[in-house]
């Protein structure tokens, strides 16, 4: 039954496409029919993380508003590079989309020696989905109670203290390196496989300082098992209205947010870009907004031009940080 009805639908859509092509329909006519079949949304991470959740939330909304199912395909590996590379190689017909992010489309360009794709020119960047800051937190027994105290302590005892991050070349690692460079601090990096094990060791007092996604530590900050010192966004975060930004503490250049966006292979027809940008913006400002804000994330939805400009800015910014911190992935 399922097979039959599905196949029939598929058959019709295929014949419609063939017919359209045969009659020499213009690009516009095709796009008006867009989407005429299932859309694959490549999420370049294994399922379960925040990025995956982002992708799925948006896919769910787009399925509703586009009238075609948007299927999430997890293509994890190499910090998002595998999925992003696969997406870059596919046809720019609007049926392959990719969840772009700070790793695969900004940091990796600075940390990996041989990237198989260019994060800016190989993609059509459609719109931003959400962004959120990292947070610097410490074990409650640690001496520093404020960011300034942490700075003073690290200056007094350079190289004595350690910080845990969710991995070499992760957005949290890069944010901390940026802060260290601007503030002239020497704090050693202890790298983990993801945010959860890093948090575990800081909770257990094995490492005193933690930098990770701001939302992940909320329950532990509430219960007093971690003390949050600062967030890395340009403004304070809704989850921690009393916690200052690093910028407020006197380092206005230290702004680092983890972001995700919607992108497609380069050369996506402009009307499809427009359609997807509008629908995604509606979704993140509408039905998905509450869920994003519960995670301390700021909804995106900017124009394609602005998002493209933002991505190239991020690539340049993190390349500089990676070079001066000597971080390479390969």
């Amino acid at each position: 039954m399922i097979l039959n009805s599905h196949n029939r639908r598929k058959f019709f859509s295929i014949s419609a496409t063939l017919l359209a092509a045969a009659c020499g329909f213009s690009e516009i006519a095709l796009a008006q029919a867009y989407p005429s079949k299932q859309i694959t949304f490549v999420v370049p991470f294994p399922p379960g993380g925040t990025s995956d959740a982002m992708g799925r939330l948006v896919a769910q909304e787009l399925s509703k508003t586009l009238g075609q199912s948007v299927i999430v395909e997890n293509r994890g590996g190499a910090n998002g590079n595998i999925g992003a590379a696969a997406a870059a190689r596919s046809k720019p017909d609007g049926y392959t989309l990719v969840l772009s992010g700070i790793g695969s489309h900004a940091i990796n360009a600075g940390t990996y020696k041989n990237m198989s794709f260019d994060p800016v020119t190989d993609f059509t960047h459609i719109t931003s989905i959400a962004s959120g800051p990292n947070a610097i937190a410490v074990h409650p027994d640690f001496l520093a109670r404020t960011l300034q105290e942490l700075i003073d302590l690290a200056r007094k005892e350079p190289g004595k203290h350690n910080y845990a991050s969710s991995g070499t070349g992760s957005s949290s690692n890069m944010a901390m390196e940026l802060f260290k460079q601007k503030a002239g601090l020497k704090i050693d990096h202890i790298s983990y496989r993801g945010g959860a094990p890093a948090m575990t060791d800081v909770l257990g007092g094995q490492v005193p300082i933690l930098i990770t996604n701001a939302d992940a530590i909320l329950p532990h900050v509430k219960s007093g098992k971690l003390r949050i010192l600062a967030v890395t966004g340009s403004e304070r975060n809704v989850l921690y209205p009393d916690t200052p930004t690093i910028a407020e503490a006197g380092y206005p250049d230290v702004v680092a947010v983890s972001w995700t966006g919607l992108s497609a292979p380069a050369g996506l027809p402009s009307d499809i870009v427009k359609r997807l940008q509008e629908e995604t913006a509606k979704a993140v400002k509408g039905p998905v907004r509450q869920r994003l804000e519960a995670l301390g994330l700021t909804p995106g939805g900017v124009s394609s031009q602005d998002f493209t400009k933002f991505v190239s800015g991020e690539v340049a910014k993190w390349k500089a940080v990676a070079q001066s911190a000597g971080i390479t992935a390969e």
């Binding site: 379960g48 993380g49 959740a53 993801g194 959860a196 939302d215 329950p219 219960s223 869920r291």
Partner: peptide, 23 residues
Amino acid sequence: GIPSNPVMALMIGAMVIQGIQPG
């Protein structure tokens, strides 16, 4: 809220999507 394996990480993901902050 600490996952000990990929399955647990997925369940934490499910909680997050449901609007529950694991911890």
